[in-house]
Nucleic acid binder design. Structure first.
Lengths: 334, 334
DNA sequence: CTGAAAGCGCTTACAG
DNA sequence: CTGAAAGCGCTTACAG
């Protein structure tokens, strides 16, 4: 089909492209009523719809942003994206979703392609592996917001959970219930991924605050696939922990699997608290005590920061780190 | 910052825009080696990156597709999107994600905006409420693929679960285990959403095949919020069902909650099979027998169909419905 | 109140 | 092997 353009509309309405464009952009200030009507009719009749790519080229704004998460399959990411999409939708922005899979090379490709597509800004769960690129974006004052993770020496608005607090809440809860042998299991700490690092450090600090010893044997960092084995080791220590903090939902799954396979009773044999309020927490047996992340609020905040930044067109903007409060969902696994 | 354009590169490399463009598009056929080198150097030095919006305007292809799901928070949608994104990434396409929330008005807005943005094609979980729009797209031979749901009288490539088979597998399994009083719970059937309608009809057919009566009291259709109440009614029937098929994960949640609150033992008091292989199926107590949807395969297929359609540039293409096989995950809740 | 003209940054016949 | 020119479909000063 031949596409109908603004020229066609202009011809049909017996006016000029300029006037039609004014109409489209709702600048009716000086438009005669009958001109307006003719244009309206022509648009209707021709089934005209503006080509936003052309507009974007001229206006240097595509009204779309990019969101680069680690993996959309993680429910936290899904919720964040949902919140971002909702916020963007209200402001007539669209969102392109990318999965970086914790791979800096993939992240780099995405950032470069998104920029080439003239996306107005990017929200990223940074891999941390592209420091020079991040710096370049910032030096060009390209709108950028980090979420879930921060990157050393990169000065950009960042939205984070108060991870130390999350760990502290869990430890406090364990202690309150009477536990003093408390362990933590985290996915690999190697890449220095913010939530993991901070939660572990918060865990240690909280232990100290309670005058409890920080035993390295009680702190397990392992790939998800190895957690079962590491857990086994930990629980077969001469003095095993009686309570375990699961750093996130994936770790919690492994602990629950292990407990089931080894017929461990929760919380009698081992108490458990998980960070991430998993979908089944309320009807699992026992009901699972969790610490929820305000994922929607965090996504919304990130979107808000980004769109404000875009709107403010490179004028000096303050850079901050925004910490969100985790929330204890007290149930029965501790 | 001033953007650097192809003209800057041309000037710097002492050649013309045309030649630089040839270079960018890797049409080296007739390019002298030193020209090539000069261009390369200029690009490097200026930090040039092409403006894809300009290219898109000229080439009438944005290398971007739109995906409109009901709600990205549903794990099935998330998996489908992941598969689509992976496939698109391989072909250098980007994907814009939209949530229609089963709202035809919202769907309409998205479709129109995506088209205005000159997106090369759309994959949709159609609400079913915009028949005229769908028809219009098709008549313009705009690349479109439906997923999860089909729409009457709309002839477009559609990727679906074999829903009847999913229900049949569940019923067969119940019967095999010795159950003959089998119920089904589904979210509201009112909107005629394909998977619900087809699973219920598959359920009835399967019952008949086994010579079992189809009792209306055993078929509950209710909003998620009302399921607890309806379940209570059903289980207090003079002759209540002893096995229940949960139409999807959300329904399963409600059943599990109910069972927990009323201390019903699964499968002793009530056997359960759920369609959708929920994350905790393998370590719930009891382990949950489920029927998995091949979400990744389905997403990949949809992406493949769409990109082929885009590549084939409006030439006649066959239209089909692609049914994917559900898979029984035999565990212990039946 | 409206129109002609230039320009956004590319690509693509076409000529040489 | 390379360049000048037209054009993709808009928007935006500017002139009148």
């Amino acid at each position: 089909m031949k596409t109908v353009t603004i020229s066609d509309v202009a011809r049909h309405a017996q006016t000029s492209k300029s006037t039609v464009s004014q109409f489209l952009n709702k600048r009716y200030d000086y438009m005669r009523d009958d001109t307006k009507k003719r244009i309206e009719a022509a648009i209707e009749e021709l089934g005209y719809s503006p080509n936003i790519v052309a507009r974007s080229l001229k206006q240097k704004s595509t009204k779309t942003i990019g969101v680069i998460v680690a993996n959309i399959l993680h429910v936290f990411s899904t919720q964040v994206i949902r919140a971002i999409e909702d916020f963007c939708n209200d402001s007539n922005y669209h969102v392109i979703v990318c999965n970086a899979d914790d791979d800096p090379a993939k992240e780099k490709r995405y950032i470069e392609m998104l920029r080439a597509k003239q996306v107005d800004g990017i929200i990223a769960f940074p891999t941390g592996g592209n420091v020079d690129l991040y710096k370049k974006l910032i030096s060009e004052s390209y709108p950028l917001v980090f979420l879930d993770r921060k990157v050393q020496e990169i000065s950009v608005n960042t939205v984070l959970l108060d991870n130390e607090k999350a760990a502290k809440i869990a430890v406090d809860e364990f202690v309150k219930t009477g536990y003093d042998k408390i362990g933590i299991i985290t996915p690999s700490l190697e890449k220095g991924i913010t939530p993991r690092v901070e939660r572990v450090s918060g865990f240690k600090k909280a232990l100290e605050e309670h005058g409890l010893p920080v035993k390295p044997e009680y702190i397990v960092s392992a790939k998800i696939a190895d957690i079962q084995r590491e857990l086994e080791k930990m629980l077969n220590l001469p003095e095993p922990p009686k309570a375990i903090l699961a750093l996130n939902d994936r770790v919690l799954f492994e602990i629950l699997k292990y407990a089931k396979e080894h017929s461990l009773k929760i919380p009698e044999d081992i108490a458990v608290i998980g960070i991430d309020d998993v979908s089944f927490a309320g009807f699992y047996s026992p009901e699972l005590t969790t610490i929820a992340q305000p994922a929607f609020d965090m996504g919304k905040k990130a979107a808000e920061l980004l769109l404000n930044r875009i709107a403010s067109k490179g004028s000096e903007v303050e850079v901050n780190t925004f910490r969100f409060d985790p929330q204890l969902k007290k149930r029965s696994s501790c």
